[in-house]
């Protein structure tokens, strides 16, 4: 499943997408994120799955444009993306 967390508002598109088929639930992204955006737990959109997957914390979903801002900038790679070995995480902006 491709899970897109975030939003689109007048100022642009701000989605963090997680490919749950690639995600191993290892939690390295949770450790790497300096702002507590990522979390790991049961796949809440696939009720019959037993595997744990990464997602964007519910309290952050409406403000990632702001929370993730310090990790963005020219020449920077977001730490969550860098930490993800299977390459399951992507930012839309």
């Amino acid at each position: 499943m491709k899970a897109n967390y975030g939003y689109k508002d007048g100022s642009g598109d701000f989605f963090i997408s997680i490919d749950t088929d690639k995600c191993t639930g290892c939690g390295l992204c949770v450790e790497a994120c300096p702002n507590g955006v990522m979390t790991v737990g049961e796949d809440e959109n696939d009720p019959f799955s037993e595997d744990e997957v990464a997602s964007v914390d519910e309290t952050e979903r409406k403000k990632i444009k702001y929370t993730c801002a310090p990790c963005k900038g020219e020449g920077k790679t977001e730490p969550c993306i860098k930490a993800c070995e299977p390459g399951a995480i992507n930012h839309s902006w």
Binding site: M1, K2, N4, G10
Partner: peptide
């Protein structure tokens, strides 16, 4: 009926 891709926008009223 299993989800393969989704997005939800509940941040912005537009």
């Amino acid at each position: 009926g299993k989800v393969t891709n989704f997005l939800m926008n509940d941040k912005c009223a537009a």
